[in-house]
Amino acid sequence: MKKLLELKNVRLTYQTINDEIEAVKDLSFSCNEGDFVSIIGPSGCGKTTVLSLIAGLLKPTSGEILIDEKPVEPSLSVGYMLQKDQLFPWRTIEKNVYLPLEIKKINTTENREYALDLLKKYNLLPFLKNYPDQLSGGMRQRAALIRTLVSKPRLLLLDEPFSALDYQTRISVCDDVYNIIKSERKTTVLVTHDISEAISMSDIIIVLTARPAEIKSIHVPNLEFDSPLKRRESKEFGVLFEKLWKELN
């Protein structure tokens, strides 16, 4: 199978006036099309930095990052979703979802129709002309995901996308987002500090060490169910949770 994402010996060193900080040290991994990869690690270990590197927002000091065997740049191929929904409050849901089309200058009727299809499929069509502050946290996060999907990215990058939600909403939005991603067959890299979230969603879990970030271990959960909610109930879930928790502490 062709590799969709590949990191080869990626290294990143930050320069500050007083110091030189090694943030990422020799990171290599890859994933195939359709994989759901989670990256977990102790807080401040540079998880977000890794995502910024994959998004092409930061240039690695050395090493290579390839998407579809081509070097990355911020472009069509990557969709980035952040902690808060970051919907623009002065735009309606419809206009928010069109934002990537405007930025990438692909605001065609065809692409807008695709966006509307997604909104319809995921029950946001009635809120087309509403403003973000009129929607619940969960719906806003769904709208943010659809905004990420409209430019048909090859790879989705999720940076703790549920951490701003309360526990109840988080569980259901997590399920929601997972189902959308799976039905759109998107390859995803998720960064999180929530072990149970990582286990319930991922095909592959990468555990990073404290800074400078290196790979500590890679796990393949292989749970029998195909829904984060149900996975949380399975026996292996608890076993893996404990294992990861020990690794992180």
Binding site: L57, E73, P74, S75, L82, Q83, P100, I103, K104, S151
Partner: peptide, 11 residues
């Protein structure tokens, strides 16, 4: 973060 979001779209 909103600037970051736009940058990730290649703005």
């Amino acid at each position: 973060d909103k600037i970051l979001l736009l940058e990730s779209m290649g703005a």
